[in-house]
C-alpha cells in the first residue's frame, strides 16, 4: 500500500480522480448541513442563538489538531520510509491547518465575548492553540526560507515532530488546568454529552470540514508533484546561451535526472 503510492505519477492519477468527488461531497454536505446548523437546529436554553457558533468553531478546532497530527504522521512516514509523497502531503496540509487554527481562534473570540465576557483569556486551552498557530507558521516558514525543497523537507519533518508535543497539551489542557474553556464533550469516555438535535448537525459539519481538508491536501500535493516535474524539465531543457559576440548557442544543461 505504502509502496504503491510511492510513485508520484500514480498518486497524481489517484488524486485527480478523487479530488472532484471529495470537493463535490463537501459542497453537498455543506449545502445540507449549514442551514440545519445555523437556522433549523434548536437554540441553547442558556446561550440562545450564540450556540450556533459551535458549528463553525468546534469543527475548525478539530481540523486544526487533526491537520497537525496528519502532518506529524506524514513526517514520520517520510522520516522512516523516505516516502516521496509524504512530505508533499504534509506540506499541503499545513496552510489548511493554519487557516483552521486561525478560524478556531477568531470564532472562539466571537463566542467568548457573549459567554465569558471577554474576547480573549490567557488560559491553557487558548494559549496552547495560539502556540499551535505559531508552530504552523514556523513550519511553513521553513518550507519558504530554504530554497532547496529536499533540504527544506528534512528540517520541516524535524520541526513537525518537535511541535507535536503541543498536541497532547491542547487535548488535555482543559483537564490538567483550571480553564474557562469547557472540557471535552464529544470525544470522551462515556460518549458525547451533546443532545442528538445538536450532535447531528455538528457531526455533519465536522465531516464537511474533513472532506474539505482531504480535498485541499490532495490538490496541494498534486500541485507540488506537478511543480517538481516542471522544475526537473526546466533543468533538463536545452538552454540558449548568449555569447559575448552576440551569437547564441544551445547547450544541454546538466540537470538532475528525472
Amino acid at each position: 500500500m505504502l509502496d504503491f503510492f510511492a510513485n508520484p505519477a500514480r498518486f497524481e492519477a489517484l488524486s485527480r480522480t478523487l479530488s472532484p468527488w471529495l470537493l463535490a461531497s463537501w459542497a453537498i454536505l455543506f449545502v445540507i448541513a449549514l442551514p440545519i446548523a445555523l437556522v433549523f437546529s434548536p437554540a441553547d436554553y442558556q446561550q440562545g442563538d450564540t450556540v450556533r457558533l459551535m458549528y463553525i468553531h468546534v469543527p475548525a478546532a478539530w481540523m486544526a489538531t487533526i491537520a497537525y497530527t496528519f502532518i506529524a504522521v506524514m513526517s514520520v512516514m517520510a522520516f522512516i520510509w523516505r516516502h516521496p509523497i509524504a512530505d508533499a502531503l504534509a506540506r499541503a496540509a499545513a496552510p489548511v491547518g493554519l487557516a483552521m487554527t486561525g478560524l478556531a481562534l477568531v470564532s472562539g473570540a466571537f463566542w467568548g465575548k457573549p459567554t465569558w465576557g471577554a474576547w480573549w483569556v490567557w488560559d491553557a486551552r487558548l494559549t496552547s492553540v495560539l502556540v499551535l498557530f505559531f508552530i504552523y507558521l514556523a513550519y511553513l516558514a521553513i518550507w519558504d526560507t530554504i530554497s532547496d525543497p529536499a533540504r527544506a523537507a528534512k528540517f520541516a519533518r524535524v520541526t513537525a515532530l518537535l511541535g507535536f508535543v503541543n498536541i497532547p497539551i491542547i487535548k488535555f489542557s482543559v483537564d490538567w488546568w483550571n480553564s474557562l474553556h469547557q472540557p471535552a464533550s464529544l470525544v470522551r469516555a462515556g460518549g458525547p454529552t451533546i443532545d442528538g438535535s445538536m450532535l447531528t448537525p455538528l457531526l455533519m459539519m465536522i465531516a464537511g470540514y474533513t472532506l474539505f481538508f482531504a480535498w485541499a491536501v490532495c490538490a496541494g500535493a498534486e500541485a507540488q508533484i506537478i511543480e517538481a516535474r516542471a522544475r526537473r524539465r526546466s533543468a533538463r531543457a536545452p538552454r540558449r546561451i548568449l555569447k559575448v559576440d552576440g551569437t547564441a548557442r544551445t547547450e544541454q544543461a546538466e540537470g538532475e535526472d528525472g
Binding site: I142, T145, I169
Partner: peptide
C-alpha cells in the same frame, strides 16, 4: 542546522518552554 536566524528558534522552542 537550517542556517536560519534566532527568531525562528524562539518559535520552535515555544512548545517545550510553555
Amino acid at each position: 542546522g537550517m542556517g536560519a536566524n534566532g527568531l525562528l528558534g524562539a518559535c520552535l522552542s515555544a512548545p517545550a518552554t510553555i
